[in-house]
């Protein structure tokens, strides 16, 4: 758990409006350029998303996604070039397969699908970038902070009661 008093933080957040922390891995050649273009066009989108520039969506190690979610992010977005448009020809094809399986694995472990999303956004799709950010932020706001995902005591108790479940 983070050193910062998460309980205290969460309480503070409950009192005010919940501002999610969302990490967006953006590929340098397409999505980052798209984000740039969105900025140039003075498009408005929520500031809750922190953009982290990576050389390629293929660079995003699934570990990074999990670590971000464990260390205080309420949602993670991975963005790259459209399939076929990768600057390095094939990086996003690999990323696609990898993320498809990893996303399903995390959801299998109980992660709400909205918390980990993947999108292909090209350098010219400033609008799509904005729309994606708005939509992801919206999704996460509805879900609330990561702490809200904690299973209820009733579910835990029911699970524990079934001997041999674990």
């Amino acid at each position: 758990m983070p050193i910062a008093e998460t309980a205290h933080e969460a309480q503070g957040q409950a009192n005010e409006e919940f501002r999610p922390k969302i990490l967006a891995f953006c590929c340098n050649w397409c999505t980052y350029a798209g984000a740039d273009l969105a900025g140039l066009n003075r498009m408005n989108y929520p500031a809750d998303v922190k953009v982290l520039r990576v050389p390629c969506s293929g660079r995003v190690n699934p570990q990074h996604v999990l670590r971000a979610l464990q260390d205080g992010c309420d949602g993670v977005l991975v963005c790259g070039c459209h399939p076929g448009d990768c600057h390095y020809s094939t990086g996003n094809y690999y990323a696609k397969r990898r993320m498809m399986v990893f996303k399903r694995l995390l959801e299998f472990e109980g992660l709400p699908p909205e918390r980990f999303q993947i999108r292909w956004i090209s350098g010219s799709e400033a609008g799509k970038f904005r729309d994606t950010i708005v939509q992801v932020t919206d999704d996460i706001k509805k879900l609330g902070p990561m702490a809200a995902d904690e299973p209820s005591q009733a579910v835990v108790a029911a699970l524990r009661a079934k001997e041999g479940e674990l």
Binding site: E107, E109, G110, E150, P151, V156, L159, E165, L166
Partner: peptide, 19 residues
């Protein structure tokens, strides 16, 4: 196992990783 709700699975894996 997949018949379980996401919340149940979450609780299950929380238990598993605590163990």
């Amino acid at each position: 196992f997949e018949q379980k709700t996401p919340e149940e699975r979450r609780a299950f894996f929380q238990d598993m990783y605590e163990s």
